[in-house]
Simulated assay, not measured.
Amino acid sequence: MIQLLVMAKAPVPGRVKTRLCPPCTPEQAAAIAAAALADTLDTAGAVPAVRRTLVLDGDHPVPPGWSCVPQRGAGLGERLANAYADTALPGVPSLLIGMDTPQVTAEALTHAALALREFGTVLGPAADGGWWALGLTEPSQAAVLAAVPMSTTATGALTVAALRTLGTEPALLPPLRDCDTAADALAIAAMCPPGARFPVAVAGHLPVPDVSVGRAR
């Protein structure tokens, strides 16, 4: 068994999904973020775990059966390192994901949990060069994340390199696409299962460009 951590930011207009603006307004971007978070929590809630913890920046309702700890630290790398430290359970590996891959399935997370138990460390690469999941058997290993530049096209590779300095080689999970831009949101919405909130939010809150504007007559 593992514990699941979901790293999230409260969906407050002007503080989340700012790269969706434009074409979205801050309110529309926040609505899309709220749907992404809700779908992620639903999916994670369906995966067997010793404990599920929302590692939260801001104020947001916590689902029944979940724990919650606040994010702390100056930068994202430091916040990630502290997320592992603040939730450590002796003898229980931790699998951390974010709220930017609402298309993730319970099957994918179950596979990640099994791989974490088998290999000790796992990393899920993201299409933009970052990562969408990181599983560690020893929470103290996350301390190396504080020195890894985050939100770059090299973040995934640099995270692997940092873990190698500790003598661990993470097993790689299947890659997923993060939701950062409008193009990402549209592509991810098409990957979500029926009944998911994210495609509905994207359809309702992501303005579609008028391709007829500027078209030659």
Rank of each mutant, 00 (worst) to 15 (best):
A133P: 02
A34L: 05
G204C: 04
A143D: 13
K9C: 13
A29S: 09
L123I: 14
M7Y: 10
I32V: 07
A74G: 09
P139K: 02
V148P: 06
K17S: 14
L41G: 12
L166C: 01
H111S: 00
E27P: 02
L166H: 14
R51S: 14
G130K: 02
P48D: 05
E138F: 07
A157W: 00
V160Y: 01
A46R: 15
D178I: 09
A142R: 02
L4K: 02
D184C: 13
G91T: 02
L96D: 03
G98A: 12
P70A: 00
R217G: 12
M150Q: 15
A146R: 08
V69R: 14
T137W: 08
R215F: 13
T121D: 07
R51P: 11
W132C: 06
E78H: 07
R52K: 13
P48F: 02
E118H: 14
A147E: 09
A46G: 14
A142V: 03
D39Y: 12
T165F: 02
P194W: 08
L158E: 15
G129Y: 01
R52H: 07
S140I: 04
V104K: 10
A162D: 04
A49Y: 12
L54C: 01
Q103T: 00
L176R: 12
T181F: 04
L176F: 08
A161F: 00
P26A: 11
C192N: 11
R197D: 10
A36C: 07
T121C: 15
T25W: 14
A162P: 01
L54Y: 04
G75L: 13
A171N: 12
E78V: 05
A190C: 04
L96E: 05
V16Y: 14
P207G: 05
K9V: 09
L54V: 08
G75C: 13
P125W: 00
A10V: 07
L116R: 00
S67C: 13
C192R: 10
T137Q: 08
W131F: 15
R117V: 00
P125T: 01
T153H: 08
A147C: 04
P22C: 08
C24Y: 11
N82A: 15
W131V: 10
W132R: 06
A126V: 04
A115C: 12
R117H: 07
